[in-house]
């Protein structure tokens, strides 16, 4: 497809192929890395931490 057929291509920032891609752009361009982070962080900080606190509540005697 030529650039004129695809308006999304015209102003792409990647036209200059010789420039190194910044670290954060690499991160943001990787949907599966973002998926991993977006599932892991709340799973650890909210679900696992919260569940561990509940299961360690001592039983009433």
């Amino acid at each position: 497809m030529s650039d004129t057929e695809n308006p999304g291509v015209e102003s792409s920032q990647a036209d200059d192929g010789n420039e190194p891609i910044p670290f954060w752009q690499n991160v943001l361009d990787n949907p599966f890395l973002l998926l991993f982070l977006g599932v892991t962080i709340p799973t650890v900080l909210y679900v696992i931490w919260g569940v561990m606190e509940i299961v360690t509540i001592p039983l009433a005697k």
């Binding site: 695809n6 792409s12 920032q13 361009d29 973002l34 599932v39 679900v47």
Partner: peptide
């Protein structure tokens, strides 16, 4: 190669929604 460089911002916002949806649905299943 239907696009060059990064995905458009609107698609990136939808990607954010999809990622949160995966966590949401997994929690719901649990």
């Amino acid at each position: 190669r239907t696009y060059k460089g990064s995905i458009p911002l609107v698609t990136f916002g939808a990607l954010t929604a999809a990622i949160i949806a995966v966590f949401t649905i997994a929690s719901g299943a649990i």
